[in-house]
Every structure is written in C-alpha cells, then in structure tokens.
Simulated assay, not measured.
Amino acid sequence: MAVHKQPQSMPMQTQMSNLPPSVQYLNSLDQVFVKQKIEMLEVLTGFETANRYAVLNKDMQQIYYVQEESSLCERCFFPLNRGFQLHMTDNNSQEIIRMSRDFKCCMGCCWCAGGFCQMVINVEAPVGILVGRIKTGNSKCQAHMQVYDAADNHMFTVWGPCCPCQAICCTDDIDFPITDPSLTQRVGNIAKVWRGVCTDMMTDADSFRVNFPADMSLNAKVLCIAATFMVDYYVFEQQRKNNNN
C-alpha cells in the first residue's frame, strides 16, 4: 500500500525548508523501513542487477521508491566498486532526493576505508542542492561511516559490528548505532532486519529499520536514511560477494 498524500501538515517542526512536501512528510516520523526488492533475474542467474528499494513508514505503507542507475559493465565486473546514482522518488514519481557515488578502483576494507579508497555518497535534496555526504572511515575490524552536512561538518558517526552476519545460529537484527561525533550520545539506529534463513540464503534483498528522534531536523533525517544505503552497499554487498566466492 502506498501513501499518496505526503503530507497535508507537519506538526512536529515548523522549520523552513526548500524540500517538497513529500520529503517534509518525514517531519512526523521517528522510524522508516528500507526494503530491497527481490530481483528474480539475479536469484536465478546470479547476474548483478540494479538495486531497487521501497521506503516504508511503520504501517508498512510505501512513502518513497528508490532506483539505482549504474553501468552494466561496472555491475558485472566491479560490483563492489561501482559508481551509481540512487534516484528517490515519491509516490507521484517526482524525484525528491538523489544519492550518488563515484566508481573507485580500490574498494577499501575496514583497514583502508579512508584516503584513496574512501567511499563517499553525496546526498542532494532536492536534486542539485547538496545536503551532506556519507563517508567511510578507517577502523581495525568494524564498519565505520561518518555523516557530514553540506558545509562538511561532522554530524554523526555510524559503527557496525565486527561480524555483521545472520544465519541459523545468529538470527538477531544487526545494529549500526548512530552517535554524535564524540561517540557519547546515541541519536538513532540503523538495523538490518532478520528475515529468515531461507530468504537470506536465496536472495540478496536486504531489509533495514531506521530509527531517529521525531524532532530531529529534516536534513539530518534525510542523511540518516542515506547512511542506510551506504551500510547496504559498503557492508552487505561486500559480505554477499565474499560468501559467493
């Protein structure tokens, strides 16, 4: 079920914004779900297809749709390094947010996720206006990402576990806490939702739950949702590739 009227009023905040009403709908939310669509061609053949996602509210109503645009050659031969644009549209097919990442020859692991190997997702909302960036950072074994605003101020840090796996013996959701830069205050959470062993073994379509304070600024909520896509591409695309090998 899709939400077609997004929204008529935003009672949680009165901040001025140049974002369209469909994005300002996030003002009233403290949780969204990001569910990757199952691609049958990829299931049957292993061929890397462009990812598609639905963004849902807590009532499981679709509020946005996300479509990856990327090179067929890069998806086939450099799936982890590929550059892409993620086009987020509302239920009226209007593009409201664009997330883009450049192709990198080096796909940084935790040890070398900064510098030349650093992956960066630029977030525009609306298209053409930068609201921030998601960058990977160095660590010994944990996935480490940092969220920056348009002025390159460090807003949040996202840390993942050393072993982000789910299996029959490990069925819990996998948490990626969102903290302030000092790591002392937890301001939100990204969780990869456990969907069952059969689904996880047969498909690579992931599901995520994103939590943030209802009164968080609209731009910050947009960046937290964008960080979810960095988690998927940087952590779980790499994990699936390693499992396939």
Rank of each mutant, 00 (worst) to 15 (best):
Y148R: 00
P126T: 14
T199C: 14
I134M: 07
C112T: 09
G115E: 07
R195Y: 02
D204W: 07
A191C: 10
C170R: 14
T199S: 15
T157E: 09
A167E: 10
I134F: 02
A150W: 04
A191I: 09
D206L: 08
V187E: 07
C162E: 00
D204K: 14
P164W: 01
W159A: 05
P126D: 15
T203A: 01
I129V: 14
V123D: 01
F208T: 02
M107L: 13
I168L: 15
M155H: 06
V210P: 00
T171V: 15
F156T: 01
V158Y: 02
N138Q: 06
V147R: 04
N122C: 11
G137R: 03
E124T: 07
R133M: 07
S182D: 10
W111S: 12
M119Y: 03
C141P: 10
A151L: 10
V147H: 00
C110N: 08
T199A: 15
C117T: 03
V210I: 14
C106Q: 09
A143R: 00
G137H: 10
V197F: 14
G132D: 00
C170E: 08
T171C: 15
P161M: 07
A150F: 10
T171Q: 15
M202N: 03
A167T: 11
C198G: 09
R209H: 04
L183Q: 08
Q118N: 05
D204F: 03
V127L: 13
C162H: 02
G114I: 01
S182T: 14
Q185H: 14
Q142H: 12
V120S: 02
W159R: 12
K135F: 00
V210D: 00
W159F: 13
R133D: 01
I168F: 13
Q146Y: 04
C110Y: 12
V147A: 00
G128F: 11
Q166V: 11
N189H: 07
L130H: 11
A113E: 04
P181W: 09
T157G: 06
Q146T: 12
D152N: 12
C170D: 11
V193P: 00
C112V: 13
F176E: 03
N211T: 12
N211D: 15
N122I: 10
I178A: 00
Y148H: 00
P181E: 08
C106L: 15
T184P: 14
D180C: 15
P177T: 05
A150Y: 08
I174G: 01
I121F: 03
F116C: 15
A205P: 03
